[in-house]
């Protein structure tokens, strides 16, 4: 690891200034659980760090609003996961947080930084000699034709099949969350669905954020579908493991009829993946084991599989189906 300049602004205003002053190769560091990890692997080598972890004004959150839930980007994952209102009214959001990483990491990682968690692709993290278009554009992709068990089957390209590893962004995608950002050029709002890019020919560009653009806030529109929601995470270990397949599902039902279905997928795609075809197929019909299964299958019609990750098509479909039935159960009891 090369040394770096370091600035720790204490207000958002100062952070924007620090970002304006910093070199173009500066990186924003918050909890550090992704960036510092990758610096230790010599995958990231920033010349400067702007530490935003002490922006106290961004650590608050409010889940009691009548129009939207508001999460300061520097709030810790563990604090939001422990929120009783969220656990009751939006179990998918709470579950996506406490099923992620470990208690220690959740005490460090911020909900803003977590959106930008980078892939766990071992060829990406392993450095040389593995070619990796994400790490070194144009060098190739070792995962294609390699050990791709954990890799993506949706949203892949001939340049990259790395899976987006996060959980929280997947749950947020199901609820059409919005992100507020600031940069030296001003503020803007980004729908979560537009934050992450598919790899295409440029897998090194993972989001639409500019290097000096700071996520300050995450907003989730209030919906009654929140209560009938779940984040269903299937992984090898019972805890402390990344998803092989996950589904964030939220429902609004009227009797047996589905009025609203929200499905987002993790562990199977190159970015948080909204399964809109599956959602549409469920609308207006009764949710049964059969229709849930059909919706699950529909979500993977475009899947492209490699040598070892074919099972994700079946596992993903079953995960969606099971998540739908869990959410339906919560609709009944709420």
């Amino acid at each position: 690891m090369r040394s770096f300049a370091y600035a720790r602004p204490l207000t958002v205003m100062a952070a924007v200034q620090a970002l304006a002053d910093a070199s173009p190769h500066a990186r924003i560091i918050a909890g550090g659980t992704t960036l510092y990890d990758l610096m230790k692997l010599n995958i990231e080598a920033p010349q400067a760090l702007v530490d935003v972890s002490r922006l106290g004004e961004l650590t608050t959150f409010d889940t009691s609003g009548t129009r939207e839930l508001v999460f300061g980007a520097m709030a810790r994952m563990s604090d939001i996961a422990a929120d009783r209102t969220l656990q009751t009214d939006y179990p998918a959001l709470a579950e996506s947080l406490w099923l992620a990483a470990s208690p220690q990491v959740r005490n460090m990682a911020t909900v803003g930084g977590n959106l930008l968690q980078r892939t766990r692709c071992a060829y990406f993290r392993g450095g040389a000699p593995y070619p990796c278009n994400k790490r070194q554009p144009g060098s190739g992709c070792a995962a294609i034709g390699g050990l791709d068990r954990s890799h993506a089957i949706l949203g892949t390209s001939t340049s990259c099949v790395a899976v987006y590893p996060g959980d929280w962004a997947v749950a947020l995608a199901a609820f059409d969350a919005q992100l507020d950002t600031v940069s030296p050029r001003g503020e803007r709002t980004i729908p979560i669905d537009e934050l992450h890019r598919e790899p295409g020919e440029t897998p090194h560009l993972e989001t639409i954020l500019k290097p000096d653009e700071l996520i300050v806030r995450i907003r989730v529109p209030v919906t009654v579908a929140g209560r009938a929601s779940t984040y269903h995470k299937i992984r090898d270990r019972a805890s402390y493991a990344f998803a092989l397949a996950s589904a964030a599902v939220a429902l609004r039902v009227d009797g047996d009829t589905v009025r609203e279905a929200r499905i987002a997928l993790g562990g199977v795609a190159t970015r948080p993946w909204r399964a809109r075809d599956a959602e549409r197929a469920l609308m207006g019909g009764a949710l049964t084991e059969g229709s849930a299964r059909a919706a699950g299958e529909l979500a993977f019609t475009a899947a492209r599989t490699g040598q070892y990750n074919r099972f994700k098509v079946e596992l993903g479909a079953r995960t969606i189906a099971e998540a739908l039935m869990i959410a339906k159960g919560r609709a009944k009891t709420s």
Partner: peptide, 29 residues
């Protein structure tokens, strides 16, 4: 149920050379 050191025959060595990808049981297992 968990442990395997993954070998990519194109490169040699072991690919999953850390404790996040080489899965030993956790308490919840």
């Amino acid at each position: 149920l968990r442990e395997a050191s993954e070998v990519d025959p194109r490169y040699g060595g072991f690919l999953n050379a850390d404790l996040a990808e080489y899965l030993v049981p956790v308490n919840a297992d």
